[in-house]
């Protein structure tokens, strides 16, 4: 691996970490899981500008670091499920070539929330969490639109970021 590539990875991981932290400072609307998903800016950027494998590596490293720094075992399970399902759906949708960054990011946002609900249903052994599905579907869509629009700009305008 070339030094410049290592430096770029480090930069993106640090950025994703900083965005995770920045997001934790934002006021919460009072429903678990409703959030903007700022780190997803970096993941979508990496997916389009670097490649699928790089996006996976970045996303997993970020989730592990965030859980180590700010979370616990349970939060690792939630984050991992959300991040993995989200990225899997985004990869698939990107591969179809039928959607722009916005569509891909929207699907990722909703998939992220779905993954977290699935883990919550499993860990808490209750199916009552169905009550959160509408609001999390809505919030995932809205957050996905915002992140997708900004990501599209980044993908287009950030100069020279090839490995």
């Amino acid at each position: 691996m070339r030094a410049s590539k290592i430096a770029r990875y480090g930069l993106l991981v640090a950025l994703a970490l900083a965005l995770s932290y920045a997001e934790s400072l934002l006021p919460s609307p009072g429903v678990p899981g409703v959030k903007l998903g700022l780190p997803n800016l970096v993941v979508v950027f990496a997916l389009y500008r670097l490649g699928t494998a790089d996006a996976w590596a970045l996303s997993l490293v970020r989730v592990l670091l965030v859980s180590l720094l700010f979370g616990n075992g349970a939060s690792l399970a939630y984050s991992l499920a959300g991040a993995a399902l989200s990225l899997a759906v985004m990869c698939l949708l990107k591969r179809t070539g039928k959607f722009s960054e916005t569509g891909v990011s929207v699907a990722g946002g909703v998939a992220h929330n779905a993954g977290q609900i699935a883990v919550a249903v499993f860990l808490l052994e209750t199916t009552r969490l169905a009550w959160y599905l509408p609001v999390l579907c809505l919030s995932g869509t809205v957050a996905g639109i915002l992140i997708g629009l900004v990501s599209a700009l980044l993908v287009k305008r950030v100069p020279e970021f090839k490995s």
């Binding site: 039928k98 959607f99 722009s100 569509g103 699907a107």
Partner: peptide, 9 residues
């Protein structure tokens, strides 16, 4: 692609 985005949303 934009039309598909809107349909998905």
């Amino acid at each position: 692609t934009h039309r598909n985005d809107v349909l998905l949303i």
